[in-house]
Structure formats: structure tokens, C-alpha cells
Simulated scan of single mutants.
Amino acid sequence: METNYSTVMMKPIDNVAVALTNIPGGTVVTVNCGGNTIAVELKENIEFGHKFAVAPISSGQDILKYGEVIGVAVKDIAVGEHVHVHNLEGKRGRGDRIVS
């Protein structure tokens, strides 16, 4: 069943959206961005301020939020999955990698 939970996705190139409230797993949310509407069934509970995939993300692929790269997927992430430290590695401020 689709509901009216609030989410935000700023750029059409983003592959994640952000929950603006706690949303229970199994909920179908409607994400609107740039004139496009995406229906996503959440695979698990998503807490306020947390991200979920709106498109499949392959291991090694950049994760885009607000039109910016925020990290890289460390494993495949399905549509509707929670995107957080268990499947995302940040690229900024690590200090242990040289980016060419």
C-alpha cells in the first residue's frame, strides 16, 4: 500500500533519497524529483534522515545524494534497501587513499 511519507531527492542523477520521517519496511513511498516520480518499496525500516536506494547500485559504484558523490557501494544495493555505513564507504576525508 502506498503512503504519503515525506522523502527528498534533490537531483535526477541521485541514486538515493532521504527519509524525512521514520518509515516502516514494506512501505511503498513515492519519491518526486525533477518532474519524475519513482515508487519504491522499502526493504527495511528507514529512520529519519537516512538514505535508501531508488535505483540499483552495484558494488564499486558511486553513491549520489543531492547531486554529489557521497561514497562508494561496498556491495550491491537493491532498490529500497537502506544505504548506510554497512554498504557505503565514504570517499571524503579518509586520508589513507590517494585519488587520481
Rank of each mutant, 00 (worst) to 15 (best):
L64Q: 05
D14F: 07
V69M: 08
D96G: 12
V69T: 13
K43T: 13
V85A: 12
V85N: 10
N22M: 03
I98G: 08
I98Y: 10
H86V: 06
G35N: 06
P24H: 07
T30E: 11
M1I: 11
M10Y: 03
A17W: 01
E68V: 05
K11T: 03
E68G: 02
N4W: 04
V40F: 01
T30Q: 08
V18I: 13
K91P: 04
S59G: 13
M9P: 06
H50V: 12
R97E: 12
N22V: 02
N36M: 14
S6K: 15
N36T: 12
T37Y: 03
E47Y: 08
A78C: 04
N32R: 10
H82Y: 11
E89P: 02
D62N: 07
G49S: 09
G93R: 11
V72M: 12
G25T: 03
P12V: 06
A73S: 05
I57Q: 00
D96R: 10
S100V: 15
I23A: 03
G71T: 05
V83G: 01
V69A: 08
L42T: 01
N36Q: 15
I38P: 10
Q61E: 15
K75Q: 15
M1F: 08
D96Q: 12
S6Y: 09
V31Y: 01
K11G: 01
T21G: 08
P24S: 11
F48I: 14
V99G: 10
N15R: 02
G67F: 03
A78F: 02
V18T: 15
V16P: 01
G90V: 10
G25P: 02
T3D: 15
N32K: 11
Y5Q: 10
Y66L: 07
T27G: 02
T27E: 11
E44F: 02
G34A: 09
V85S: 12
G26A: 05
D14Q: 12
V99W: 13
R97M: 10
P56N: 11
M1P: 10
L20F: 03
N36Y: 07
C33V: 11
N36S: 15
V29Q: 00
G80R: 06
S100G: 11
V16Y: 01
G49W: 02
R92M: 14
K43E: 15
V99Q: 14
V8Q: 09
K11Y: 02
L88T: 09
G90A: 12
A78E: 15
H86D: 13
L20Q: 12
K65I: 00
N36G: 09
I98R: 12
S59C: 14
E2G: 04
I38S: 14
R94D: 15
L42D: 05
P56G: 04
G49C: 07
G49R: 09
N87I: 04
Y5L: 09
G93F: 08
I70W: 00
K51A: 08
V29L: 01
K91G: 08
I38K: 14
I98C: 09
M9D: 13
E44P: 00
N15Q: 05
A17C: 06
I77A: 00
D62G: 02
N36V: 10
V99R: 14
V74I: 13
M9H: 06
I63V: 07
E89I: 04
I57A: 01
L42Y: 00
S58N: 13
I98T: 14
G60V: 11
G60W: 02
M9Q: 15
G25R: 05
V28A: 04
E47K: 08
P24W: 05
E89T: 04
G93N: 14
I63L: 04
I70D: 06
Y66C: 06
N4K: 10
I57S: 00
